[in-house]
Design a protein around this nucleic acid. Structure first.
Lengths: 132, 132
DNA sequence: CATTTCTTCAACCAATGGGTTGACAAGGGC
DNA sequence: GCCCTTGTCAACCCATTGGTTGAAGAAATG
């Protein structure tokens, strides 16, 4: 932990909160519904058989993660989905997914070469054994 | 909860595990490093000042989420990043991000209309009062 | 065969998370 | 002004999680 890049600490926290928020099926369902239209806490709570306080907590989690915002409309607190943090998550995931995919695509070639010809190229050796 | 679409329950579980797995900064860091190259448990553990057992647990979490796989190489258990579940996550996020973004882009127009004319269209009423 | 290396399993502990109920704040509607 | 609706806060409960240490499994090596 100590060695994690401290420059990305804040962003890490946001990512952590965002991923954690979406780890709950109920919250993901709320997000899905908020993508269609804004909704008050009561409206959001309606489909689930949990207390409205529980739903309020869920919204707080989503809100702390920056995934939703709430405005005020009389007694109501309509929730609105914020796209920005989703971008952050997508970018994080895509970065590593692509690296993994690229490595995977190269794997076939490497394996074929190793099977057909015992002498893999220098760059492939570097990749497998590789330094730092 | 009961009302969540039961057809997507399995996928939901996988998504839940995947999001939960990536909610931890240490695990995200592991993923980042595994994107570069496969690594054994010991290699993965090296940068962090936690026990190797803790790291082993982290790997189990990632593995249960389907994000990494482990093969055997003598005593070692090299870990490999699996791109597939990342696709699942990206698709989920992108779906709702896009909806939110589209709605956001339309918002200006809607607001202008509501301010200029007190009588929202039927379809807008349906949207706000909306059924299921 | 005994030892050493790499990893996981098991038991435990403190902290977190999702749920509950009860009280209270904030704002119309009568 | 009173109350009814909407939502949050607070305290509590129990299950899960991330960490620890100690023991055990799996496989090469002396």
């Amino acid at each position: 932990m100590t060695r994690l890049n401290s420059l990305t600490a804040e962003r890490d926290d946001q990512l952590s909160r965002a991923f954690a928020a979406l780890a709950d099926p109920t919250r993901r369902d709320m997000v899905a519904r908020l993508a269609v239209r804004d909704a008050t806490v009561g409206e959001l709570a309606e489909p689930y058989d949990v207390s409205i306080q529980a739903v309020s907590k869920h919204i707080k989690v989503l809100s702390d993660a920056g995934l939703v915002s709430q405005r005020r409309d009389a007694q109501r607190r309509p929730c609105h989905l914020e796209a920005e943090v989703f971008n952050l998550m997508t970018r994080w995931i895509e970065r590593y997914r692509q690296q993994a995919q690229e490595r995977y695509e190269r794997l076939d070639a490497v394996l074929a070469e190793m099977r057909g010809d015992d002498q893999p190229t220098e760059s492939e050796v570097r990749k497998r054994g590789g330094a730092s």
